[in-house]
Design a protein around this nucleic acid. Structure first.
Lengths: 141, 141
DNA sequence: CTAAAACCTGACATGGATGTCAGGGGCAAG
DNA sequence: CTTGCCCCTGACATCCATGTCAGGTTTTAG
């Protein structure tokens, strides 16, 4: 398939696909006229690349990882494994942090709801300035 | 405390703290000479801001959320709640994606280990070209 | 054959958080 | 007062994935 179709099927812009190739993350065969051609396999590969990007890996890191996927050969196992383990850790930490943030957000929402309801209970209150209470303490880790 | 101390205690650069203020995420009182002064409360606030950044919220989004934390008043609850719910979803999706990516990484590592061992078993093999097997299929979602 | 659609390369633009530098004050200790 | 350290503003730099535009070629449909 040509680049446009790959782009459509992966929801990644044509621009980005060319960029991936520039960064050595993706390869293509070329037609006589110089146009890029891809096989089905590239669809998954692009999705995988996107996933790694979403995980916060830089294209340089990705390009260090992919050779191991491409051409498993003795040389790159150890280095790649270490690299992957390292990124796995980073990723886990990041996930934990996001989970904590989500919890904080939940706390914030709960507090907001509670405040809204207490305000609703005290009907006919003075408008516009709330109750003057200090900010809800939802910021702790 | 002055900005340098806040920076040290939150592990956020002085530059960034000023930037937060510029974006309306943080306020400070000023000394006669114009220097920023902060209270203890700001330490937690900065940490919270960092957390939201880490969760992928933009400073604009954060600044839409924080007023609710600061001055809970009728007007901003509904909007802020909706906003928070929305960001919570984004966050959850993001987390799921990262978890999937981590799983994919685990698969990759397992495959790499397996290959290394199978190569170790077949001792004295020709060096440098692996076994010519096609790339491990670890890319599925 | 021709026109439209898709592709090519190369270059410059963007956004967002942050780094960094310049030139000038504030403030405490000696 | 002076020295040293921290602070101020403003501006420009950087990184990185993408967007976008220009000018030209290839492919495909009619």
């Amino acid at each position: 398939m040509r680049i446009g179709e790959l782009a459509a099927r992966t929801d990644v812009s044509v621009r980005s696909l060319r960029y991936y190739e520039e960064q050595g993350l993706l390869t293509s065969s070329r037609s006589a006229g110089g146009q890029r051609h891809y096989t089905e396999a590239e669809v998954e590969r692009v999705r995988f690349i996107q996933r790694l990007y979403a995980a916060g890996l830089s294209s340089r890191t990705i390009s260090e990882l992919l050779p191991c996927v491409d051409t498993p050969s003795e040389g790159n196992y150890d280095a790649a494994l270490e690299r992957m383990a390292q990124e796995r850790n980073r990723l886990s930490e990041h996930i934990d942090e996001l989970v904590r943030t989500r919890a904080a957000l939940d706390g914030l929402m709960a507090t907001a709801r509670a405040h809204r309801e207490s305000e609703a209970r005290a009907q006919g209150v003075r408008h516009g300035s709330g109750d003057g209470a200090s900010a809800p303490r939802v910021l702790e880790s």
